[in-house]
Amino acid sequence: MTALRLLTGVVGLAALGWGIRLLLRLDLGDLLNAGLWMAGAVLAHDALVAPAVVLIGLAAARFVPTWARPAVAAVGVVVGTMTLALLPTLGRFGAKVDDPFLLNRAYGAWWLALTSTAVVVGLLVALRSRRASGADGP
């Protein structure tokens, strides 16, 4: 295992070094702008998305009945991650007036359909597990 670790590490460092070399060969303006976007991406996750998830978790622990919590969490994971993945599509930021084939579907309606399906399925699963466990809930 030590040899494997060492090899992985060395190959990784080489690839990393090559990547940094490629970065340094970019236009200075491109490099600075890309650096800004990278730092922004980390900030957006670490200081916005992740704390928001912590807060949502705290709120759920307080307001959501125990039997419904797993379902709420699962629906949150599915809807939350899918929404972030589909953000450029849902926002249609890249749409062009003279391109009728780009970003041309009813994404908002489908998103509503997806979200409501997830909520209904989550609710059914939660109710079934509540009945199965015979709990009365809080």
Binding site: T8, A14, L26, D30
Partner: peptide
């Protein structure tokens, strides 16, 4: 989605950062 909200050139930057990502991933592993 053909959305380019940034100022850098996409292909050369996406290519360079790909090496950084895969390299730092291997180091992490």
């Amino acid at each position: 989605t053909q959305w380019y909200p940034w100022a850098f050139s996409f292909r050369s930057t996406h290519y360079a950062v790909a090496w950084v990502a895969i390299g730092s991933l291997l180091v992490h592993v």
